[in-house]
Design a protein around this nucleic acid. Structure first.
Length: 255
DNA sequence: ATGGCTTGACCATCAAGA
Protein backbone atom coordinates (compact mmCIF):
# COMPACT_ATOMS: atom_id res chain seq x y z
CA UNK A 1 0.00 0.00 0.00
CA UNK A 2 1.21 3.48 -0.89
CA UNK A 3 0.10 6.69 0.78
CA UNK A 4 1.20 10.11 -0.43
CA UNK A 5 0.77 13.78 0.38
CA UNK A 6 1.26 16.85 -1.82
CA UNK A 7 0.49 20.52 -1.26
CA UNK A 8 -0.30 21.53 -4.83
CA UNK A 9 -0.93 25.28 -4.31
CA UNK A 10 -4.01 25.54 -6.58
CA UNK A 11 -5.56 22.42 -8.04
CA UNK A 12 -6.77 24.45 -11.01
CA UNK A 13 -3.22 25.32 -12.04
CA UNK A 14 -1.67 21.99 -11.04
CA UNK A 15 -4.32 19.48 -12.20
CA UNK A 16 -2.34 18.29 -15.25
CA UNK A 17 0.73 17.75 -13.07
CA UNK A 18 -1.29 15.84 -10.46
CA UNK A 19 -2.79 13.58 -13.15
CA UNK A 20 0.64 12.97 -14.70
CA UNK A 21 2.09 12.21 -11.29
CA UNK A 22 -0.68 9.73 -10.46
CA UNK A 23 -0.21 7.94 -13.78
CA UNK A 24 3.49 7.54 -12.99
CA UNK A 25 2.98 6.87 -9.27
CA UNK A 26 -0.11 4.76 -8.57
CA UNK A 27 -1.11 5.14 -4.92
CA UNK A 28 -3.89 3.98 -2.62
CA UNK A 29 -4.34 7.53 -1.35
CA UNK A 30 -3.01 10.90 -2.43
CA UNK A 31 -3.71 13.64 0.11
CA UNK A 32 -3.83 17.09 -1.49
CA UNK A 33 -3.66 20.46 0.25
CA UNK A 34 -4.29 24.05 -0.88
CA UNK A 35 -6.87 23.21 -3.52
CA UNK A 36 -7.84 26.91 -3.55
CA UNK A 37 -11.23 26.19 -5.11
CA UNK A 38 -14.83 25.77 -3.97
CA UNK A 39 -16.44 22.35 -3.86
CA UNK A 40 -18.38 22.81 -7.10
CA UNK A 41 -15.17 23.30 -9.08
CA UNK A 42 -13.43 20.13 -7.87
CA UNK A 43 -12.40 18.27 -11.08
CA UNK A 44 -13.77 14.88 -10.08
CA UNK A 45 -14.31 13.84 -13.73
CA UNK A 46 -10.62 14.22 -14.53
CA UNK A 47 -9.70 11.91 -11.66
CA UNK A 48 -12.36 9.38 -12.60
CA UNK A 49 -11.01 9.26 -16.15
CA UNK A 50 -7.71 7.90 -14.83
CA UNK A 51 -9.30 5.41 -12.44
CA UNK A 52 -9.56 7.39 -9.23
CA UNK A 53 -12.27 8.92 -7.12
CA UNK A 54 -11.95 11.54 -4.38
CA UNK A 55 -13.31 13.06 -1.20
CA UNK A 56 -12.80 16.78 -0.79
CA UNK A 57 -13.46 19.82 1.38
CA UNK A 58 -13.00 22.89 -0.77
CA UNK A 59 -12.85 26.60 -0.08
CA UNK A 60 -12.72 29.55 -2.44
CA UNK A 61 -9.24 31.10 -2.82
CA UNK A 62 -7.65 29.56 0.28
CA UNK A 63 -6.99 26.18 1.88
CA UNK A 64 -9.02 23.15 0.74
CA UNK A 65 -8.05 19.48 1.07
CA UNK A 66 -8.79 16.22 -0.72
CA UNK A 67 -8.08 12.50 -0.60
CA UNK A 68 -7.73 10.97 -4.06
CA UNK A 69 -8.12 7.20 -3.98
CA UNK A 70 -8.95 4.29 -6.32
CA UNK A 71 -12.07 3.29 -4.36
CA UNK A 72 -14.45 5.36 -2.24
CA UNK A 73 -13.72 5.51 1.49
CA UNK A 74 -16.17 5.49 4.37
CA UNK A 75 -16.80 7.59 7.49
CA UNK A 76 -15.84 10.81 5.77
CA UNK A 77 -14.99 13.52 8.29
CA UNK A 78 -14.46 17.14 7.33
CA UNK A 79 -12.81 19.49 9.81
CA UNK A 80 -11.82 18.72 13.40
CA UNK A 81 -14.92 17.77 15.41
CA UNK A 82 -15.71 20.39 18.05
CA UNK A 83 -13.34 22.96 16.53
CA UNK A 84 -15.45 25.51 14.70
CA UNK A 85 -13.47 26.70 11.69
CA UNK A 86 -14.54 28.23 8.38
CA UNK A 87 -11.14 27.26 6.96
CA UNK A 88 -11.18 23.90 5.22
CA UNK A 89 -8.04 22.17 6.46
CA UNK A 90 -8.95 18.58 7.32
CA UNK A 91 -10.61 15.63 5.63
CA UNK A 92 -10.49 12.02 6.81
CA UNK A 93 -11.65 8.76 5.27
CA UNK A 94 -11.43 5.09 6.13
CA UNK A 95 -9.88 2.96 3.37
CA UNK A 96 -10.24 -0.70 4.17
CA UNK A 97 -9.19 -0.84 7.83
CA UNK A 98 -6.90 2.18 7.62
CA UNK A 99 -7.93 5.64 8.75
CA UNK A 100 -6.40 8.28 6.48
CA UNK A 101 -6.35 11.89 7.67
CA UNK A 102 -5.37 14.68 5.26
CA UNK A 103 -4.35 17.92 6.97
CA UNK A 104 -3.33 21.40 5.89
CA UNK A 105 -2.02 22.85 9.13
CA UNK A 106 -2.01 26.63 9.55
CA UNK A 107 1.09 28.57 8.56
CA UNK A 108 1.09 31.00 11.47
CA UNK A 109 2.65 33.87 9.48
CA UNK A 110 4.86 35.18 12.33
CA UNK A 111 5.26 34.70 16.05
CA UNK A 112 3.51 38.03 16.68
CA UNK A 113 0.51 37.24 14.48
CA UNK A 114 -2.98 36.23 15.58
CA UNK A 115 -2.52 33.48 13.01
CA UNK A 116 0.23 32.04 15.20
CA UNK A 117 -2.20 31.78 18.14
CA UNK A 118 -4.69 30.14 15.80
CA UNK A 119 -2.01 27.70 14.64
CA UNK A 120 -1.20 26.55 18.18
CA UNK A 121 -4.90 26.27 19.09
CA UNK A 122 -5.54 24.36 15.90
CA UNK A 123 -2.75 21.91 16.80
CA UNK A 124 -4.22 21.43 20.29
CA UNK A 125 -7.61 20.61 18.78
CA UNK A 126 -6.00 18.24 16.27
CA UNK A 127 -4.14 16.49 19.09
CA UNK A 128 -7.31 16.04 21.16
CA UNK A 129 -9.22 14.69 18.19
CA UNK A 130 -6.45 12.28 17.13
CA UNK A 131 -6.34 10.86 20.66
CA UNK A 132 -9.95 9.77 20.23
CA UNK A 133 -9.50 8.79 16.62
CA UNK A 134 -6.60 6.46 17.51
CA UNK A 135 -8.85 4.61 19.95
CA UNK A 136 -11.39 3.98 17.21
CA UNK A 137 -8.82 3.36 14.48
CA UNK A 138 -5.55 1.80 15.68
CA UNK A 139 -4.34 1.77 12.09
CA UNK A 140 -4.16 5.48 11.36
CA UNK A 141 -2.06 7.65 9.04
CA UNK A 142 -2.10 11.43 9.03
CA UNK A 143 -0.53 13.07 6.01
CA UNK A 144 -0.17 16.66 5.03
CA UNK A 145 1.50 20.03 5.14
CA UNK A 146 2.28 20.55 8.83
CA UNK A 147 3.99 23.92 8.39
CA UNK A 148 6.52 22.78 11.00
CA UNK A 149 10.12 21.71 10.42
CA UNK A 150 10.48 19.28 13.34
CA UNK A 151 14.26 19.58 13.85
CA UNK A 152 17.24 21.60 12.69
CA UNK A 153 18.16 18.86 10.23
CA UNK A 154 14.90 19.71 8.45
CA UNK A 155 16.05 23.30 7.82
CA UNK A 156 18.60 24.34 5.20
CA UNK A 157 20.00 27.13 7.37
CA UNK A 158 18.96 26.62 11.00
CA UNK A 159 20.83 29.70 12.24
CA UNK A 160 18.97 31.94 9.81
CA UNK A 161 15.60 30.42 10.71
CA UNK A 162 16.10 30.26 14.47
CA UNK A 163 13.06 31.49 16.39
CA UNK A 164 11.10 32.08 13.20
CA UNK A 165 7.66 30.71 12.42
CA UNK A 166 7.73 27.05 11.23
CA UNK A 167 10.67 26.24 13.54
CA UNK A 168 9.80 27.98 16.84
CA UNK A 169 9.93 25.85 20.02
CA UNK A 170 6.15 25.98 20.67
CA UNK A 171 5.47 24.74 17.16
CA UNK A 172 8.04 21.97 17.48
CA UNK A 173 6.47 21.03 20.82
CA UNK A 174 3.09 20.79 19.10
CA UNK A 175 4.64 18.42 16.57
CA UNK A 176 6.29 16.36 19.31
CA UNK A 177 2.94 16.17 21.11
CA UNK A 178 1.55 14.37 18.07
CA UNK A 179 4.42 11.88 18.20
CA UNK A 180 3.66 11.43 21.91
CA UNK A 181 0.27 10.02 20.90
CA UNK A 182 2.19 7.04 19.51
CA UNK A 183 2.68 8.34 15.97
CA UNK A 184 5.95 8.05 14.06
CA UNK A 185 7.43 10.38 11.45
CA UNK A 186 7.61 7.87 8.58
CA UNK A 187 10.48 9.70 6.88
CA UNK A 188 12.72 9.27 9.94
CA UNK A 189 12.08 5.54 10.21
CA UNK A 190 14.80 5.15 7.57
CA UNK A 191 18.26 6.51 6.79
CA UNK A 192 17.79 9.56 4.56
CA UNK A 193 20.03 11.84 2.53
CA UNK A 194 21.17 14.93 4.41
CA UNK A 195 19.38 18.14 3.50
CA UNK A 196 16.14 16.42 2.49
CA UNK A 197 13.37 18.98 2.11
CA UNK A 198 9.78 19.07 0.85
CA UNK A 199 9.34 22.81 0.27
CA UNK A 200 11.45 25.50 -1.38
CA UNK A 201 10.58 29.18 -1.69
CA UNK A 202 9.69 30.33 -5.20
CA UNK A 203 12.09 33.24 -4.78
CA UNK A 204 15.86 33.50 -5.06
CA UNK A 205 16.35 30.20 -6.88
CA UNK A 206 15.71 28.41 -3.60
CA UNK A 207 15.15 25.01 -5.24
CA UNK A 208 18.33 25.26 -7.29
CA UNK A 209 20.24 26.13 -4.10
CA UNK A 210 18.35 23.44 -2.14
CA UNK A 211 17.40 26.17 0.34
CA UNK A 212 14.35 24.34 1.66
CA UNK A 213 12.47 23.02 4.65
CA UNK A 214 10.95 19.63 5.44
CA UNK A 215 7.43 20.57 6.49
CA UNK A 216 5.31 17.93 4.71
CA UNK A 217 5.04 14.76 6.75
CA UNK A 218 3.45 11.35 7.05
CA UNK A 219 2.75 10.24 10.62
CA UNK A 220 1.88 6.58 11.24
CA UNK A 221 0.36 4.83 14.23
CA UNK A 222 2.44 1.95 15.65
CA UNK A 223 0.92 -0.91 13.62
CA UNK A 224 1.45 1.04 10.39
CA UNK A 225 4.93 2.22 11.35
CA UNK A 226 5.88 -1.43 11.87
CA UNK A 227 4.57 -2.21 8.39
CA UNK A 228 6.26 0.77 6.73
CA UNK A 229 9.05 -0.33 4.37
CA UNK A 230 9.95 3.01 2.74
CA UNK A 231 9.32 6.75 2.86
CA UNK A 232 10.61 9.12 0.21
CA UNK A 233 10.35 12.67 -0.96
CA UNK A 234 9.81 12.87 -4.72
CA UNK A 235 11.67 16.01 -5.80
CA UNK A 236 10.92 15.54 -9.49
CA UNK A 237 7.71 17.63 -9.69
CA UNK A 238 9.51 20.64 -8.19
CA UNK A 239 11.49 20.78 -11.42
CA UNK A 240 8.34 20.95 -13.58
CA UNK A 241 7.26 24.01 -15.50
CA UNK A 242 5.01 26.01 -13.15
CA UNK A 243 5.74 23.77 -10.15
CA UNK A 244 4.09 23.79 -6.77
CA UNK A 245 6.48 25.07 -4.11
CA UNK A 246 5.92 21.75 -2.27
CA UNK A 247 6.73 18.29 -3.55
CA UNK A 248 5.17 14.87 -2.81
CA UNK A 249 6.08 12.60 0.10
CA UNK A 250 5.29 8.89 -0.28
CA UNK A 251 5.16 6.07 2.26
CA UNK A 252 5.08 2.40 1.27
CA UNK A 253 3.42 -0.02 3.71
CA UNK A 254 3.56 -3.81 3.62
CA UNK A 255 -0.17 -4.16 4.23
C1' DA B 1 17.44 46.81 5.59
C1' DT B 2 14.09 45.22 2.24
C1' DG B 3 12.19 42.07 -0.87
C1' DG B 4 13.06 38.78 -3.92
C1' DC B 5 7.72 34.48 -6.58
C1' DT B 6 3.11 32.60 -7.25
C1' DT B 7 -1.89 32.43 -6.86
C1' DG B 8 -6.57 34.27 -6.70
C1' DA B 9 -9.55 38.06 -6.74
C1' DC B 10 -10.83 40.98 -10.23
C1' DC B 11 -8.79 44.53 -14.16
C1' DA B 12 -4.72 47.31 -10.23
C1' DT B 13 -2.99 46.23 -6.61
C1' DC B 14 -3.17 43.38 -2.52
C1' DA B 15 -3.48 39.36 0.79
C1' DA B 16 -1.42 35.10 1.81
C1' DG B 17 1.77 31.71 1.60
C1' DA B 18 6.35 29.81 4.18
Amino acid sequence: MKLATWNINSLKVRLPQVLDWLRANPVDALCLQELKLSDEFFPIDAFQEIGYTAHWAGQKTYNGVAIVTPAPGTDIQKNIPGFEDPQQRVIAATLGDIRVVCAYCPNGQSLESDKYIYKLQWYEALNRWLQEELKRYPRLAILGDYNIAPADEDVHDPAKWEGDVLVSPPERQAFQALLSLGLSDAFRLFPQPEKSFSWWDYRRFAFRRNAGLRIDHILLSAPLAQACVACEIDKAPRGNEQPSDHTPVIATLAV
